[in-house]
Design a protein around this nucleic acid. Structure first.
Lengths: 159, 159
DNA sequence: CATTTATACTTGTTGACACAACTAATGTTG
DNA sequence: CAACATTAGTTGTGTCAACAAGTATAAATG
C-alpha cells in the first residue's frame, strides 16, 4: 500500500478516518504553508494579511464610490472572519493606513477610510504580490485552479 | 456578468487579479470557516486544534511501538507548522495530557508521551469528530473529496 | 583535546486573537 | 414617552502565536 503525500509529510502510516478528514487536513496543511509565505511577504511591507485585507476592501469601496465604510461593513467583507476588527483597525490607524470618523446621522457608527499613504502602499505591492501568487500556484493550470476554486466553494456551502 | 460566490460573500464587484489569487482567497475563506467550527468543537473537549494534533501524533506513534517522541519529531509531524511547540506542549503537560522525560542517551532531547487521560479523551472524541467532519463536508461526493485532496496536494507541491 | 559548530530545546517579549462584558446610540412597543 | 431590545462599536482579560535570543548538550574539526 502506497502512502499519500500528506501521510508521508506527517509520517502517518495508518489511513485517514474518512475522505472528509483527509480533505480537511490537506486544506489545513496547504493553506498553512501558503499563508505562512504570504504573511512573510506582507510583513516586508509592514502590514499583516488581515490588515492588507481591510485596506483592499477600503480601496475597492473607494473605487466604487464609497470613500469610507462602517466598521462592521468592513468586518463582513473580510475573507477570513475576524472577531476583533476594532483593534485590527486600531493598529491600521496607528500606522497611518486608515482614518476613522464618527457618523453624524447615526452616532453609533464609525466610518473607516483608507489614507493616500496606504493607497500608495497597495499600488507598490500590487505587482510583487501577483508574482508571489504566481510563484506559489503558477505551476497549476488555469483549469486546475478553476476546479480547485469550484470545489472549495462547494466545500463551504454547507456552512 | 455574474459574480462568483466569493465575490458575493465579500461584496467585491471587480474580478480577481488572477485565477491564482482567486484560488488562494477561496482557500483562505473555506479553511477559515471550517477551522472556526473545528476549534469550537475542540474547545468543548478542553483542547485546541493544535493540541489535539499533538495528541493524535503521540497516540499514533504509540500504536506503532513508540511510547514517546522527541519534541522536534512531534513538531515535524504537525499538519500545520507551529514554531512554538515547547509552549504548546507546556500547556498539554499542565493539563495532564502529556508527560515529558529527558533522554539519558542525549540529554538535549526531551521525550513527550501521551497520558492515559488523553488517550481516553481521544477515544471519546473519535465519533463526534467524525460526525463533525461529515456534517461539514458530507455533502460532497467521494470523488469530489478525492479530487479536492489531489488539487490541494498539487497546490503545495511548489513549496 | 580545546575550540568551534550544530542540535534540541527553552525563555523573553511583543503582538495578535478570542470571548465576554460593557457603553452609547437608536429602534420598538405598550 | 418610558422601558426594553437592538445595533455599533469598545474595552478587559486571558490565551496563543511569532521572532529572536539564550542555554545546555553533543558532534565535528584542527
Amino acid at each position: 500500500m502506497t502512502l499519500s503525500l500528506l501521510q508521508r509529510e506527517i509520517k502517518q502510516k495508518r489511513p485517514f478516518a474518512s475522505p472528509e478528514v483527509e480533505a480537511y487536513l490537506n486544506m489545513a496543511r496547504t493553506f498553512g504553508l501558503l499563508a505562512c509565505g504570504i504573511e512573510r511577504f506582507f510583513k516586508d511591507y509592514g502590514v499583516s494579511a488581515a490588515g492588507y485585507n481591510v485596506l483592499r476592501i477600503l480601496n475597492g469601496a473607494k473605487r466604487e464610490g464609497d470613500d469610507a465604510l462602517p466598521t462592521l461593513e468592513v468586518a463582513q467583507r473580510l475573507v477570513s472572519p475576524v472577531p476583533d476588527v476594532t483593534r485590527l483597525i486600531d493598529r491600521l490607524e496607528r500606522d497611518g493606513f486608515v482614518t476613522r470618523l464618527r457618523s453624524d446621522e447615526d452616532r453609533r457608527v464609525v466610518y473607516v477610510a483608507i489614507t493616500t499613504q496606504a493607497q500608495t502602499l497597495l499600488r507598490k505591492m500590487q505587482k510583487p504580490l501577483a508574482e508571489h501568487h504566481k510563484a506559489n500556484l503558477g505551476h497549476m493550470s488555469k483549469a486546475e485552479l478553476k476546479e480547485l476554486t469550484r470545489l472549495l466553494e462547494k466545500a463551504r456551502s454547507a456552512q
